[in-house]
C-alpha cells in the first residue's frame, strides 16, 4: 500500500476505506477506550488489592472466596507503622536514596558534560564502558565487596551503601545526562564561551537550567532504583543500614501467616515512591526517553 505512488491505483482503495472508516471509528474509539479502562484496572488491581487487604482483619484477608466488602480496620497500618521499627528503615532508605543520588550526580553530571561537549574519538568507547559496568551482574563482585567492606568497617553502614548505590546509578546518570547535554543548542554554548564564561559557569548557569527536566527525571529514576534495591541491601546490611525492602522481607518472615498486616507493611513500604513517582510522572515519561534516545 505504502509504495503505491500512482494515484489512479490508490483511489479505489481510498474510497472503500473512506466508506468504512467513519462508522467503524465511531464504534472503535469508545470500545478501545473502554478496553483501556479495563486493562488499566486489571493491571493496577494487585496494588489495589494489597492496599485494601491492609484494611482487613486477618480472617477476612485470608478468606476464600475473596471478600470485596468488609469492615475496614486501621489496626494493621497502625501496628506496621508503630509496633515495628519501620521508621528506622524508612530513615535509612531516604538517606541511602538521596545520598547516593546526590553522589551519582556530583560525579556523573560533570562526566556527562565532559563527554558531550569535548567529544573525542574515545567518547563512544567511554560511554560503552560506562554502560558495561552495569552489565556486570552484581553477583560477580559481591564476594570481594563483602570482604573489603568487612575489613574497612563499611559493612552494614549507610555510608558504604551510599557508595555502592551511587556506583549502581552513575552509568544511568552519565548516559541520560550526556544525551540531554548533546541536545543543548550549540549557539548558546558558543555565546557563553565568547562572553568568557568558564566551564563551571557554563555548566551551572547555562546548561543545567536548560536540562532541568532531564535532571529531575534522571534523579527520580535513581531514587526509585535505590529505594527498591534488594540484593546489595540483603547481602550487606544487618541491623544498622537496612532499607525498606529488607524491612518487608523481615516483616514477612515474622508475620508470614498474617496477610493483612503484611499488606499494610507492603503498602507503607512502597507508598513514598508512589507519591514521588506519580507527582513527577510527566518528567519521568519525558526524561526516560529524551535522555536516552534522540
Amino acid at each position: 500500500m505504502i509504495g503505491s505512488g500512482i494515484a489512479g491505483r490508490a483511489v479505489p482503495a481510498e474510497q472503500s476505506e473512506a466508506s468504512r472508516t467513519p462508522q467503524m471509528q465511531s464504534l472503535v474509539g469508545p470500545l478501545l477506550t473502554l478496553a483501556t479502562y479495563a486493562i488499566a484496572f486489571i493491571f493496577f488491581f494487585p496494588i489495589l488489592w494489597t492496599l485494601l487487604s491492609g484494611f482487613k482483619t486477618e480472617v477476612d484477608a485470608g478468606a476464600s472466596p475473596p471478600l470485596l466488602f468488609f469492615h475496614p480496620t486501621l489496626a494493621n497500618y497502625h501496628s506496621a507503622l508503630l509496633e515495628t521499627d519501620y521508621f528506622d528503615f524508612f530513615k535509612n532508605t531516604v538517606i541511602l536514596a538521596i545520598g547516593s543520588t546526590v553522589l551519582a550526580f556530583l560525579l556523573g553530571v560533570p562526566a556527562a558534560y565532559s563527554l558531550a561537549i569535548y567529544s573525542t574519538k574515545r567518547t563512544k568507547g567511554t560511554l560503552t564502558w560506562v554502560l558495561s559496568t552495569k552489565m556486570m551482574p552484581i553477583v560477580g563482585v559481591i564476594v570481594p565487596i563483602f570482604v573489603i567492606y568487612r575489613n574497612i568497617g563499611l559493612l552494614d553502614s549507610r555510608l558504604g551503601m551510599v557508595f555502592l548505590y551511587a556506583a549502581m546509578n552513575m552509568p544511568l546518570v552519565i548516559w541520560m545526562m550526556h544525551s540531554f547535554f548533546t541536545e543543548v543548542p550549540r549557539p548558546i554554548l558558543e555565546a557563553a564561551g565568547v562572553d568568557g564564561a568558564g566551564v563551571g559557569t557554563i555548566l551551572t548557569r547555562v546548561v543545567l537550567p536548560i536540562s532541568g527536566p532531564g535532571l529531575a527525571s534522571t534523579g527520580l529514576i535513581c531514587l526509585i532504583f535505590s529505594w527498591n534495591e534488594f540484593f546489595l541491601a540483603y547481602m550487606l546490611t544487618a541491623g544498622n543500614a537496612g532499607t525498606l525492602p529488607i524491612y518487608l522481607v523481615r516483616f514477612m518472615s515474622s508475620h508470614g501467616q498474617s496477610l493483612a498486616s503484611m499488606s499494610a507493611a507492603s503498602t507503607i513500604a512502597i507508598a513514598p515512591v508512589f507519591i514521588a513517582g506519580w507527582s513527577a510522572q510527566r518528567a519521568l515519561v519525558r526524561g526516560l526517553t529524551m535522555g536516552a534516545v534522540k
Binding site: 483501556t36 479502562y37 486493562i39 488499566a40 484496572f41 493491571f43 493496577f44 494487585p46 496494588i47 488489592w49 494489597t50 487487604s53 526509585i224 529505594w227 527498591n228 534488594f230 525498606l244 525492602p245 518487608l248 522481607v249 514477612m252 496477610l259 503484611m262 499488606s263 507492603s266 513500604a269 512502597i270 515512591v273 508512589f274 513517582g277 506519580w278 510522572q281 519521568l284 515519561v285
Partner: peptide, 25 residues
C-alpha cells in the same frame, strides 16, 4: 489517571511485588 495506574507497577519494589503475587494470586 489511566497512565498513572499503568505506570504504578514500576514503582513497586521487587520484594513487595513477589510477596503480593505469591500470596494473593
Amino acid at each position: 489517571v489511566v497512565r498513572a495506574l499503568m505506570i504504578a507497577p514500576f514503582f513497586v519494589m521487587p520484594t513487595v511485588n513477589a510477596v503480593v503475587w505469591k500470596n494473593f494470586f
